Computed example of a mutant assay.
Amino acid sequence: MSTSTPMINRYKWYEIIGIYCGIALFLIFVLSPFVEGFLVSLKPLSRLFSSPYRFWPEHGSFAAYSTMWESVPGFARYVFNSLFISGVATVVVLMLVVPAAYAFARFRFPGRGPLLGAFLAVNMFSGAVLIIPLFRLMRSMGVLNTYWAMIVPGVAFLIPTAIWLLRTYMLRIPKELEEAAYVDGASRLYTFRRVILPLAMPGITVVAITTFINAYSQQFIYALTFNSKTDYMPLPIGLFAYFGRQEVIWNELMAASFVGIAPAMIVIFFLQRHLVSGLTAGAVK
C-alpha cells in the first residue's frame, strides 16, 4: 500500500529554506510600499522629512484620517463617483462580453481571427494616445461633464481583455453538454442560459473582479479630460487635490489613498475564493 508524499517534503532542507526566503523577499518587495505609505499616514506632517529616518513613526496617530475630510470636503463624493463609475462599467462590460465570448468560443464566422487579433491590438494602445479622438467623440455624443464621459471610454478599453479571458474559459466547457441539450429539444438561447452560464460563472466572476479593479484604477486621465464638474469627479482627482501650490499634504494624501482603495480591497477579500477557483477551474480534468 503506497502512500503519497506531499511535494514540499520531496525537497531537501536547504531547498525549502531557499523557497521560503524567496517568498519572503517577494512579499517584502510587494508590500513595503503599502507599509511605508501607511506609516506616512500616521506621521505628523512636520516630522515626515525629519532626520534621522525612523521606520516606526514617533508620536504617530490616526489624525490624518479625520483631517483629510476637511482638507478636501468633497472626498466622500469622489469615492462614491469612483465606485459608481466602476460598477456601471463592470455591468456594461459583462452584458456585452458574456455573449460575445460565447460566440467567439463556439461559432466559426468570417473575420473571427482578425477580430480577435484586433482586440489584442487595442490593448497595445494607451488611453492617452487616443485622448483627442475620444474627446471629439464624447463631445459629438453630448456626454461631456457626465458619468458616461468616463464610463464609455473605460468600457471600450476593458472589453477586449474581458473577451479574451472569458473566451478562454468557455473553450474549456465541453461541447457535448450543449449537444445533449439540443437532443432534448432545448433551444440555443435556453442552452446558453441554463447550461453555459452556470458552468461559466467562475470565469464570469474573475472577469467581473478584474474589470472592476481596472475600471477603478484608470479614471484619472478620462476625468481630467472629459469632465470639469466636481460632482462627477472620481477618486484620482480627489487625491490630486491634496497637492497644494506650496506643499503636498503627504500624510493626508496617504490616508485618503488607503480610504480610497478600501472598497476594492473589500471586494477582493470577500470574492478571493471565487477569484482563485475561477482562475484554476479547467486547469485539470
Rank of each mutant, 00 (worst) to 15 (best):
L158H: 04
L134C: 13
S140L: 12
G238S: 00
I196Y: 06
M1L: 09
V284W: 07
N227F: 01
G60I: 09
V284T: 12
G117C: 11
S187V: 07
L134K: 15
T225M: 13
I266V: 14
V98W: 03
S257A: 13
P6I: 10
M201R: 15
L45K: 14
A101G: 06
N81M: 01
T191E: 13
I8K: 10
G260P: 01
S61M: 09
A264G: 11
G127Q: 15
V93W: 02
A162C: 11
F135D: 05
F104Y: 14
W164K: 03
L239I: 03
R106K: 15
A105D: 08
F84D: 02
Q246L: 11
G203A: 09
V143P: 09
G127M: 15
L199Y: 02
Y11V: 06
T90G: 04
R139V: 13
I19A: 11
Y169K: 05
G238L: 00
L189A: 11
G111A: 07
I163F: 04
E247F: 12
M141K: 08
A241G: 00
P263L: 07
I28C: 03
L271I: 04
V207D: 03
Q272K: 14
I85A: 01
T3A: 12
S66P: 05
P234A: 10
G60F: 10
